[in-house]
Each structure stands twice: as structure tokens, then as C-alpha cells.
Amino acid sequence: MKTNILRKESILSGIKRVILTLLLPILLYLVLVLTSFEKFGKFDSFIMTINQSMVNLAIGWSMMFGISVNLFDFSVGSRLVLAGLIGVHFSQKFGLLGLILGCVVSSVLLGSITGLVFSILKVPSIITGFAVLLIFESLGVILSKNMVNAISSEHLVLAKGFNIYILIVLLFIFVYIMYNHTKFGFQIKAIGGNERVATSMGINTAKLKFLTYVLGGFLVGFATILYVSNAGTIQPKDGLGSMSIAFTPIMGVMLGMLIKSCNSVVGVFVGSWSITIIGSVMVAFGWESRLQNVIVGIFLIIVMGFQLNRDKLFKPITTKKNIQTNN
């Protein structure tokens, strides 16, 4: 299936690819403009939708590596919350540097702990994620008891103005190189393609998966900085409440991986952005916000149904492969 699409792609010119890639969000934004030109015709409104997708994009990138090696991790949200609480605490003592280091270092640590639990216990990642989620959420609640969980306004600069773009571009370069131009990225894709073959090629899958957790932790650290700077506060969650943080980013990644006209790293951006715009469309139509997930869901089904049924030559078997890569 992939080779077929690749062959088709080789015919397309670069410009065509860019248009194809951005087609989805642009079309969606057009819907917004059509509802009200005077509200959404402005450049500011257009930029707003991009800004809004940044946090989910960063979380999405951090999950992309895990999803590529079939790691099913529920704990991302709980790690983000705990790292955020620690980062906010350090920002009160050491300022902006405290926020950055607090978030990133603690997030890398939490990612490594999750990875260690995963490799030592050798239990499925879904269970590892669930177990550490219970513990991290609880630690967050206990930690936040005697602590101010908000960040003072002078330390919110990272999510304002051009800073957010600088941060995202730096992240993009890092993720793009890691995913496409390193041995690590190659091996990850090999494991994602077929784990048994990858192992027989001499790839140390256990080590790679542990490193994926660490790298994921590093990226979640940056997502945390954006999350905290964006909202100005971070609140602990319990009773599995942190799980929903990763929901929208996952949808973005799923959608992004469907877009075949570009690299997955760019795809995740397009996916996250599209889902952000759908949220805005909901409000523009005045629909109840509880329906947002329904609309996103139906939208995903339509896009996927279209993508997967374009070529009637394939038997339902091919869906099986899709599921496994999506896991």
C-alpha cells in the first residue's frame, strides 16, 4: 500500500504536495470564514487557530515516537501535570530558568521512571501506563497541597508573541531530525513496521523502547512549558482525570499519520491544527460544546473512510495492519 502511494507521490510536484498537505486545515478554515467573514477574515483570527494548536502539537510529537513503536501510554497527561507542578514551583524560586529546567528535567525523569517500570516489569505498556498514572496523579495531588499552582505573569512569556514560534520551530527541527535522519529514528520505524524482523536485524528493541520513553519525557517537558505558560496555571487531577489531556493530541496524531503527502512530523502539525479549527467551528455554529468530540470523531471516520476506501483493490485484511501501527 505504501509503495503504491509513494509511486503516485513521485509524480506530484513539490507545490502540489504542499497544497495537498495543507488542504484540510485550509478548507476547514474556509468554513469559519464563510460563517462570518468579519470575525474570521482577519489575519489575527487565522493566527489564533495556529497558536491554539501549539500545546497539542507538542504533546502529539512527544507521543508520536511511542505510537510508532506500538507503545500504548495512558500516563502522558499525569506526567505532564506532575512535571508542570514541579516546574511552576521552581519558577517561583528561580524564575524562567527554573520553569524550563523544572519542567524538562522532571519530565525526563518521569519518562525514564515509566520506561524503567516498563522494561523491568516487562508488562504491556498499557498496564505500565495505568500503574504509573495512578501514582503520578496521586503525587501531584499530595505535592500541590501546600503549594501555589499558578505561575506569575512575568514568566508567561514563553507562550506569548514570537517566543512560542521560536520554541515550536526548535522543537520541530529536533523532532524532524530525530525521526527522519538518525539511526534511532530508523530503528524506531523498523520496530513499528515489524518487531520480529527488527529484532532479527539486531536491533535491541528493549533498549530502544526505553529510550523512546526518555525521549518522550524530554518532549513532554517542552509541551508542559507551553501548557503551563498558555493557561497560567496547572491543576492536579485525580481519578484518571489526567488521561483526557492526551485525547485531542492523539486525534491529531491519528489524523496526521493519515496525511500521506507529507512527512509524519509535519502531518502531526496539520492534524493538530485541523482539530483545533474544528473546535472553533463548533463555537462559530453555536453548537453545544459537548458535541465537539462527536464532530471530531465523525470527521475522523469520514476522512479515514475516504482514505482507506479510495482503492477498492484491497481486502479488509489491510485494515489489520493499520490497527497495529495505530496501537
Binding site: 483570527s45 489564533m48 491554539q52 497539542n56 485525547f247 473546535g279 472553533s280 453545544e288 460544546s289
Partner: peptide, 20 residues
């Protein structure tokens, strides 16, 4: 004007509402 229900991203929800 509008009721926002349990937003996951409150900032975005309020921004969208204020623009609309």
C-alpha cells in the same frame, strides 16, 4: 450568550467564544 461545558482547553474555548 453561550455555555461552555467542561472544556479540556479552557483558554481556547474562551478565546473562540470571545471572537465569535
Amino acid at each position: 450568550t453561550y455555555v461552555i461545558e467542561v472544556p479540556e482547553d479552557t483558554k481556547k474555548a474562551v478565546e473562540d467564544t470571545l471572537v465569535n
